[in-house]
Design a protein around this nucleic acid. Structure first.
Lengths: 222, 222
DNA sequence: ACTTTTTGAAATTTCGAGATTTTAAAGAAT
DNA sequence: ATTCTTTAAAATCTCGAAATTTCAAAAAGT
């Protein structure tokens, strides 16, 4: 059974799901047991994860969860805003009907899960479903930008964003506000106004930015 | 002797220096010989390089140099423009005297090498020196942006940019034009005009963009 | 002739033991 | 008491052989 990819994906999920505290040591010899493989196989996965910033690697000193800091949170959020705004504006500029349709669909799917969460709370695998649907929504938002590189970088930053916002993720707390923000983004997409889109995306991430730097806008004109 | 990092760095250098043709298979068993290590050590390095886009990895099918295409070249260039413009404008907005000084210094160092190249051609290790100085110049340009994430992503894209532009790199052919462009960027940095900076950086990468899409500007207002 | 199956060599991946390095605790010296 | 050495345990890294999978050429079948 080919496990290389599976272990990599599973580990990434665990790394962004709050299973490990920030700064925790990640011992291949320990993680090994869950997958029933050799430590070197885990090592391979951890090395790959370190290349995309989800794991910190130090020569001869092993692997760790990255440390948390508000500065890092701000930095990652700001970078995500940059990439996502850019991707959304470029997608919009291409005037693809298909894009609008796919965005509406992704939004509808997400909305369905979000409203169920408002009623049932976050029981069962609802949070996992929400995370998948939320990712799909944001990926759809930039999917028509025409740049594979931008899409790849966005995914990379997205995972870092999830990782640094896990436990404290206010998206699950401020669910109501989140629902409105997602709708606002879709409306902006359909309106075709890039500046509006820019400010709506920025507003969506407001609470993850340092208060003193929240005004630093980035306007992108295609 | 700890070789893990050294092999990783050395392989990256080789990957962006035109040693391998685009699409070439990269066999760990072959690369092994040069470093006198086991194939699995090479594998580790290749996996890490695949995580940052310098190597293509397929489960059970090994590693390859990425394929060349003008679309990919355009995409990478456009992404680099985005990150570099953003980083430069943010650096500028911080009004750091130190930044301007360091940029002037990096530019001077680069200029020295470039003028030697105009006389002596690209003999000896002049190209290697130029590449190092050019990287340092562009890294300095964004060094005061205040975002570690942006700096990391820029370096990642920079390597991809080098890789897809190696042999065909017109920077070495159109050296004279390049010298002027670098100076123009420094002048813009000192002028403090973000729009000017934006257009100067864009102009610098003009020849690596698809002709039909060269007008797609990205203006970034901090 | 063309497609499918078989088969053996080559390439890839996994593994766990041995070598190396770090870590931390105990002991010696200032 | 503090700092510096010593030492043993633990963690990390490297290696090459074994297991698995892919590749490609030969054989069989349509």
């Amino acid at each position: 059974m080919p496990q290389d990819i599976d272990i990599f994906e599973d580990l990434r999920l665990r790394l962004v799901s709050g299973e490990f505290d920030y700064g925790t040591k990640l011992r291949a010899e320990v993680l090994r047991t869950r997958y029933g493989c050799a430590a070197s196989t885990i090592r391979e996965a951890l090395l790959r994860l370190s290349a995309v910033g989800l794991v910190e690697f130090q020569e001869q000193r092993g692997f760790r969860m990255p440390d948390y800091s508000v500065e890092r949170q701000h930095d990652i959020t700001q970078t995500r805003i940059l990439l996502e705004t850019q991707g959304a504006v470029r997608s919009m500029a291409r005037q693809s009907v298909d894009w609008e349709a796919r965005l509406a669909a992704a939004h509808h799917k997400l909305g369905h899960i979000e409203s169920r969460m408002q009623v049932m709370g976050m029981e069962g695998d609802l949070p996992a479903l929400w995370m998948a649907a939320e990712l799909e929504f944001h990926q759809t938002l930039i999917s028509a930008c025409g740049s594979d590189m931008l899409i790849a970088l966005h995914l990379q930053v997205y995972h870092c964003y999830r990782q640094i916002n896990v436990m404290a993720d206010k998206a699950l707390k401020d669910l109501a506000a989140n629902i409105v923000e997602h709708k606002n983004i879709v409306d902006a997409a359909i309106s075709g106004d890039p500046d509006l889109m820019q400010s709506r995306i920025h507003a969506h991430f407001q609470r993850h930015l340092l208060p003193q730097l929240r005004n630093d806008r980035v306007s992108l004109v295609g």
